[in-house]
């Protein structure tokens, strides 16, 4: 079986979630190609995608593709799929990935499953397990037809590292002008920070922190752990923190190995965004805070005392 993987990169660094998608594809099929976009990613970075299990990477190195224009990406992926003779397209679920997956599925008359958390069961048909109700349940879904598009949830698959180097081949799809009818006029992006949806560790703060001026200790803890920072909805509503840090039902859904919640009560809508975390630590001065019921480890105490001590203890333990 031949599989094509759409890989995303952040300023030239292939996203971990995309390497997870490549690893997923390598478990699924024998021939794995990947496709990457933009002149702002280097060939050696793409060769390294081979470690996760791709034999070949098609590189669309035209500058026009440096920004994620959904329609153009979808057309290019459909064309690459044809060229590679692939039946399945695998990608990591993200705001861009979802949008691209939907269009590729329609273009190629494929069945589509998103938020997939495990390899398919192919013993009878092709059944995948996907996360639904915002992490509160799973559905087993039968995907029909030969052509399939699978969007996998972040951190659901381990990254393989035992592959070789991939060959990088430049690829120039034939794109219609109408595929570029959205014009990107500007980008505002935090640079040099760890992307929240990709992070292995997340340190999150809530209304218990009293104000934006107190985020220094959250950042210090995050720095020590190499973590991304997140927050609860009221915190971003009050503009203490930017919107893209808001975690929960109506915000980012994270699935890190470790989620540390500080001064967050644990409302069900917040939990919906963090319930796929492997380990949850809760620090709250109220022992009755509902978050403790969802936690693996808890400390009842004042964040203003506990957090600096924790940062110190972590530094000393290294």
């Amino acid at each position: 079986m031949s599989i094509l993987v759409f890989i995303e990169h952040d300023e030239g660094v292939v996203k971990k979630s995309s390497l997870e998608a490549v690893s997923y594809a390598a478990h699924l099929g024998d021939s794995v190609s990947a496709i990457a976009f933009g002149s702002n990613v280097q060939v050696d970075e793409l060769q390294n995608v081979g470690k996760a299990g791709a034999q070949k990477v098609l590189h669309v190195a035209d500058e026009k593709f440096n920004q994620g224009i959904i329609q153009a990406y979808a057309s290019a992926i459909a064309e690459a799929k044809e060229k590679e003779g692939a039946t399945i397209v695998v990608l990591a679920k993200s705001s861009l990935g979802d949008a691209v997956a939907a269009r590729v599925a329609v273009k190629t008359s494929a069945s589509l499953a998103s938020n997939v958390v495990d390899l398919p069961d192919t013993s009878a048909g092709f059944k995948v397990k996907r996360s639904i109700y915002t992490g509160k349940a799973f559905a087993i879904v039968e995907m029909s037809g030969d052509n399939k598009v699978i969007a996998i949830k972040k951190n659901a698959v381990a990254v393989k590292e035992d592959g070789g180097q991939a060959t990088v081949e430049s690829f120039m799809p034939t794109i219609k002008d109408t595929d570029f009818n959205a014009t990107i006029t500007g980008t505002e992006k935090a640079t040099g920070t760890i992307l929240l949806p990709e992070a292995e560790i997340v340190v999150s703060g809530g209304r218990g922190l009293k104000g934006p001026e107190n985020w220094g200790m959250i950042e210090a803890l995050a720095d020590t752990l190499g973590a991304a920072t997140g927050c609860s909805k009221p915190v971003s509503d009050m503009e203490w923190r930017p919107h893209h840090e808001h975690v929960g039902q109506t915000g980012i859904k994270v699935s890190p190995n470790l989620y540390i919640a500080i001064g967050i009560s644990g409302a069900i809508q917040h939990l919906a965004g963090v319930n796929s975390s492997k380990i949850i630590v809760v620090i709250n001065k109220d022992g009755e805070a509902p978050f403790f019921k969802a936690a693996d480890y808890g400390i009842v105490g004042d964040a203003f005392e506990v957090v600096p001590k924790l940062t110190e203890a972590l530094k000393n333990s290294n």
């Binding site: 014009t183 006029t185 935090a190």
Partner: peptide, 14 residues
């Protein structure tokens, strides 16, 4: 204005 991972993007569209 569209959210992207770690920030946002402005775009114009007909």
């Amino acid at each position: 204005s569209r959210e992207i991972e770690g920030g946002k993007e402005s775009l114009e569209i007909g």
